[in-house]
């Protein structure tokens, strides 16, 4: 049971929700950039929410399914097609052995998650199947997919067609915009900034630069954000969504492959339920930050968790 990679696409990697427990040793968790789409992709094929899937970036690969299997597409619409016929995202399909899975151009969003019933069958490295590119660790040989790779899929991938034809209810399908507003909790170093800089941060529109990747999104604002006494702090821990502001005053949102520690002030943290908006924003996209607090962020997180649990329980029935 496997896929063969006929064309690699721009950047396709194996990801689950990341490697937990090693940040204190400096190892980045890696994992899916859009955790919501990853989980929905798995739920669509009846997998556990954290199963490994393929994260497809902008321009997708061409894959050949070697056997019958049930797959699903969730996340950005990168024009997935089965045997050259374009199909919808947020939906699962039964594909026959020999079928071609290909992609067109990005219609919206930047990352698509291709799940397969039974999951991607590669060994876990330190508790996860996520690829951490910088250290060449995990996933498929620690790297992005290349032409000729064979990716084994788990038991039961094509055992039944029961999970084919499922779709995510429209109210749970996000819409991907090129101008987004994300909510962020100030801190932990908000007091290193001038009061005006904080107001500016929560009102200005920033543009996503082309130097943005799985590690972080570099943003460009009109005016640099001013620190009171410089941007350097004693290095401390980062989080998914930390907004770091180095000396040049231009923020960087730290993403899945972030460094675990850093020596620059962090003005805010993008909340978990809004991170997918960032993950799906292509270079040139516009971003605005809206202030919120930890209690609201946790209420929203719980709301999303309830939806995922509910949808997953339908998926199993």
């Amino acid at each position: 049971m496997s896929f063969t990679v006929e064309k690699p696409g721009l950047l396709t990697t194996v990801q689950d929700r990341g490697r937990q427990g090693y940040q204190q040793f400096g190892l980045s968790p890696a994992g899916a950039m859009d955790e919501y789409a990853l989980q929905m992709a798995n739920v669509l094929v009846g997998n556990e929410r954290n199963e490994a899937v393929l994260e497809v970036t902008m321009m997708g690969p061409v894959l050949k399914a070697e056997k019958d299997m049930v797959i699903a597409f969730a996340g950005g619409n990168l024009q997935p097609a089965i045997d050259d016929e374009e199909v919808a995202t947020w939906k699962s399909y039964h594909v026959r052995g020999g079928s071609k899975i290909s992609f067109g151009r990005p219609v919206n969003g930047a990352r698509l998650y291709l799940s397969v019933r039974g999951g991607i069958e590669i060994p876990e490295v330190m508790g996860s199947r996520s690829t951490y590119l910088k250290a060449g660790l995990g996933g498929f040989e620690g790297r992005e997919l290349r032409k000729g790779d064979r990716i084994e899929v788990g038991e039961g991938a094509g055992s039944s067609e029961v999970h084919a034809g499922r779709r995510v209810a429209s109210e749970h399908i996000p819409s991907y915009e090129k101008e987004i507003t994300v909510r962020a909790v100030p801190g932990p170093q908000e007091d290193y900034f001038e009061k005006e800089a904080l107001e500016q941060f929560f009102s200005e529109v920033f543009e996503v630069s082309h130097q943005s990747d799985r590690m972080g999104y570099r943003l460009q604002g009109e005016e640099p954000l001013k620190h009171k006494n410089g941007a350097d702090i004693l290095s401390d821990a980062t989080a998914f969504g930390s907004v770091q502001v180095p000396g040049d005053g231009q923020p960087i949102i730290l993403m899945a492959d972030r460094q675990t520690t850093g020596g620059y002030t962090k003005i805010a943290t993008v909340i978990g339920v809004d991170l997918w908006k960032v993950a799906q924003l292509p270079p040139g996209g516009k971003i605005r930050f809206k202030k919120t607090d930890v209690h609201e962020a946790q209420r929203l997180w719980q709301e999303q968790e309830d939806i995922l649990v509910q949808v997953a329980s339908y998926g199993r029935s």
Binding site: V185, G187, P188, A239, S242
Partner: peptide, 19 residues
């Protein structure tokens, strides 16, 4: 010196800023 949220998934316990 402080206990602050880092988003909804972490909390930072701060000490006097020196090595």
């Amino acid at each position: 010196t402080s206990m602050k949220p880092v988003g909804e998934r972490a909390i930072r316990i701060g000490f006097e800023e020196r090595i």
